Computed example of a mutant assay.
Amino acid sequence: MADETPIEEILNTIGDEHARTVLASVSRKSGSAKELADRLDLSQPTIYRRLDVLQEHDLIKERTLVADDGNHYKEYRCNFDSTVISLEDDEYDVRIFRKENLPDRFTQLWDELGVK
């Protein structure tokens, strides 16, 4: 895993049903906390707690937008394209693939393969 977040923390995060629901929703369509609460029929405090955890592990990104009335709000979106969780010899491996870092990811993969 390119991130230095412990695998157990990532697994615990995506093991939470509400966090998975929020993550799945923002992977399909970005939205504000209020939009997500309405869309997912969850309370805003529940949404905010999950957004905080997902953001802490760099699984989502936020950006600040300005509404027509001039008020600011945050919109959340998924920060990766895919993830692979594998189990080998009683050890988990979590790989998160991000499109925007493709050249860096290729270099890292190349280095991991030991190609010189």
Results as ranks from 00 to 15, higher is better:
A67V: 08
N101V: 05
Q55M: 12
I14D: 01
E9Y: 08
G31F: 01
Y48T: 06
L59F: 11
R50G: 08
T13R: 00
A19K: 14
T107P: 05
N79M: 06
R20K: 13
D16T: 07
D3L: 03
Q44M: 11
N12H: 12
H72R: 15
E56P: 00
V115C: 03
D104M: 10
V94R: 06
E112D: 13
Y92Q: 13
A2G: 10
V26K: 04
K74T: 11
E4F: 05
D93K: 15
W110C: 02
I10D: 10
S82I: 09
L42W: 02
Y48I: 04
L54H: 02
L42N: 06
L42V: 04
I60M: 09
P45E: 05
V115N: 04
G70H: 03
V94N: 10
R39F: 09
D81K: 11
D89I: 00
E100H: 14
H72N: 12
V53D: 15
F97I: 14
I60K: 11
H57F: 14
S25L: 00
F80A: 04
D93F: 13
S43K: 14
S25D: 06
A37V: 11
T46W: 03
T83I: 14
E75R: 12
L59V: 01
E100K: 13
Q108W: 10
H18L: 08
T21I: 11
N12W: 07
